[in-house]
Write a protein that binds this DNA or RNA. Structure first.
Lengths: 158, 158
DNA sequence: CACAATGGTTAAGAACATGTACTATATGTG
DNA sequence: CACATATAGTACATGTTCTTAACCATTGTG
């Protein structure tokens, strides 16, 4: 079964290639509008807050798997740049609730659109494949992500 | 064809999930041996030099898509840490040829093994699928990487 | 109430990137 | 040949993002 092994290996190679390209695309700064760009991290923070309004700084930090300190600094910067709002939580005097300003939503949408174009193209292309083929892809990805998740947890624990 | 669209969307979502997990795994530092770790960037530089011995600083920089300056700094650091060797090129007095020291090869192997475990597991799991299923995955990945490559080139040109 | 846990901040510094300005070497053209 | 220009590489200042460690304020619990 040599050829099957070879096929699998080259497929894994392709997968890694795609993953690498994805992270390179993710690294590009996002243009909010003429003269205003946002770094990747900023965009991701904005995206996360947009999708989970009222989350706290600590929640944000555990979401990204970074320290509270790092999250706090990021939030401070984004508040200063007028993308984020930090309000005292109603139920506690030590927690804050994060939300997006108008400018924040603008950046949120810019980021969404940035990926949206690729998504549309992908959708269009994948549509030419059969349902069962796509289902197969889905199952395989499921399998792969299962393995990765396992490894990730293993390493993070230590 | 609503359900097909939904299937495609959730598959794309899985793909992104895998890509994200991959980059998170890639971000973990590599342990060369007890008491000696290597950052991701260092590991990648070592890997690249190991796979392309005698490459120059400029080649390294264009390989990673970073500036010559950044590559030079990385090389300087790795030479100082005794992972890399920088020799005058025989055909030119302005170029250098990079290669790995013994310690460099140790780190190279550590990094390879780090991924090797995942690869083995993946190989084992994918082996349970049929050749035609894997071939489908391969074709789809091909398609996806084509789209990504296009986008990447578009954005990088500007 | 005292004290530990929790939420958050600040300061110092490491890793990695960029931009700019610079040196030294190579090369092509009048 | 001489000069302009291109190429290889480095140094330095600066920016982003992260960690660690020390810290304050609030809150929950024995």
């Amino acid at each position: 079964m040599e050829s099957k092994q070879e096929l699998i290996k080259s497929t894994i190679h392709d997968l890694i290639r795609v993953a690498k390209m994805y992270s390179r695309i993710e690294e590009l700064p996002i243009k909010v509008h003429e003269g205003l760009e946002v770094t990747t991290r900023e965009a991701h923070t904005i995206q996360t807050v947009g999708e989970n309004e009222l989350m706290s700084v600590t929640e944000l930090s555990s979401y990204f798997g970074i320290t509270k300190s790092a999250a706090s600094q990021m939030v401070t910067r984004l508040v200063k740049k007028n993308f984020l709002l930090k309000k005292q939580a109603p139920h506690s005097n030590k927690e804050f609730q994060l939300s997006l300003t108008e400018l924040g939503w603008l950046a949120f949408k810019a980021h969404e659109e940035f990926h949206g174009k690729d998504m549309l193209e992908l959708l269009k292309r994948l549509s030419t494949f059969s349902i069962s083929q796509i289902a197969t892809l889905s199952v395989l990805l499921e399998t792969i992500s299962g393995i990765m998740e396992k490894r990730l947890n293993e390493r993070l624990k230590k």
